[in-house]
Amino acid sequence: MAKYKLESQGPAFQALLNWLNPDRDCAGEEYVRLHRRLAKIFEARGCLRPEECADETFNRVGRQVLEGKEIRTDNPAAYIDGVARLVLREQWSKPAPERIEEVSANRLPQDPNVEASAKSEKERWHLCLETCLQQLSPESRQLILDYYAEDKTRKIETRNRMARQLGVATNVLRNRIFKLRNSLRGCVATCVAR
């Protein structure tokens, strides 16, 4: 299977956006929202490159719209979901060759230095994590470390205590943790990839 790439500058993409919503800005937002969800579905279904599968789904819908195919639905999301399942089936029937960097480490041939390499990788993660933690404010650092140090078997109790200390509701705390984690993980991923 050829690599999937979003034809974001082509006429098919413009036709897609127009089909999603005649308002250009609303169409853009809807595209981003649906793309994230599709990627999540592809990821959950074992697609090795879920983002590219989502791109391919939108490419196909865009081409169909551009070619004038009559799509009778008042729910574009449901139609896109149907196309996504076709892409997914193609994925299952013709598995794409895996990129070496995406192959799970335990599936690669073992070499004598694999242990040292894993250790080095782990040290790298820790080093990057430390660097990124230092870029947080002391309070944010305290919050994220408290969260990860908690006894996960007493999650509700611990989070209620943390929320009380912050003076916020638990769902607000959860939201803060979610954003903080994403921010920190993005920093670490960038650092490790360097």
């Binding site: 820790h126 947080l136 650092r141």
Partner: peptide, 28 residues
Amino acid sequence: RARAWQSGTLVSTERPPRDLTSVELSDR
């Protein structure tokens, strides 16, 4: 990292205060 910090095998010279009311998320 968090467990090491909590168990005392890791020491920060600038340990944050326990009062978390002024947490600013994504504060870079």
